[in-house]
Amino acid sequence: MTPAGRRLPPRLGQGWLVAPPAAYLFALLIFPIVLIGLYSVFLRTNLTGVVAVFSFQDWGRFFPASWGELPWRTSSPFWNTFVRSMGVTVVIALATTALAYPLAYFLAFGTRRRRSLLLLVVLAPFFTSFLLRVLAWQVMLRANGVFNSALWELHLRPHGEPVSWLINTWFSVGLVLAYAWVPFVALPIFVSMERIDRRLLEAAHDLGAGRLTAFRKVTFPLSLPGVVAGFVFVLIPTTGEFVTPQLVGGPGTYMFGQAIQDLFVGTASDWNYGAVLAVWLTVVVGLLMALSGRALTMDPRR
């Protein structure tokens, strides 16, 4: 195997060492997902006294029988929830990425000595509890909360009349999610910008390119892997999000994650149908991952 005369340096590990962690994830991640799959086609059920027989019935319930005029106004309520929720998720992820881009740009190109301090300042809130930050927004946005009471105190609105769209709307859900993710998205973009070889920018300048052209032709394309990674970082957790809409959303902001949660532990228990939704979400996220390419692969090419 080894070419004669050339000793390969000994490596530290032994391949079999991956077995325990791999087995662990297989047992507690892959196997449960397989179980969800079995539930979704009724090969298993937790209904008392019902015999489990293979059936696509619940999948048939999920995919709309008739499509209506819009993809979120079909005959299947949970399909509608999925489309609406997914659409909003993409919008939130795009908005968050857009908000994070200038931040990353500033950190990468606008700072020098204090860079790590400035980076730390925006990342630090991320280390405080997520739920507490959602709670803080709830306290600020609610009808008799900080914003509204401030408006009343400043006589900008008659006392007792809150601004109605501040909470229980897509606005509040989007705001809180964007708030939670902006620093997290800025990080991979910042890293990809930092990796850009400054000589490329010098070369662009020498060839007569202005700052804008240099940005368009050099910086932006080279920062794209970070942008994709950041976008995906928000997209994945938000597709299954159910806590934020529960705390700051309303009847109109019912998200797919909430539907799954409700079907498993909420008022409308139906594990088999819930399993259909969970499998579908997993498949869709998997496809999105495949589409976003190698941005997230762990093994860097070398």
């Binding site: 309520p77 949970f78 509608n80 929830t81 019912y254 409700d262 909420g266 008022t267 409308a268 139906d270």
Partner: peptide, 14 residues
């Protein structure tokens, strides 16, 4: 009961 629960679940999802 299950049908009632389903109706309410669908209303929330609609």
């Amino acid at each position: 009961r299950a049908e009632y629960q389903e109706v309410w679940a669908e209303v929330k999802a609609s």
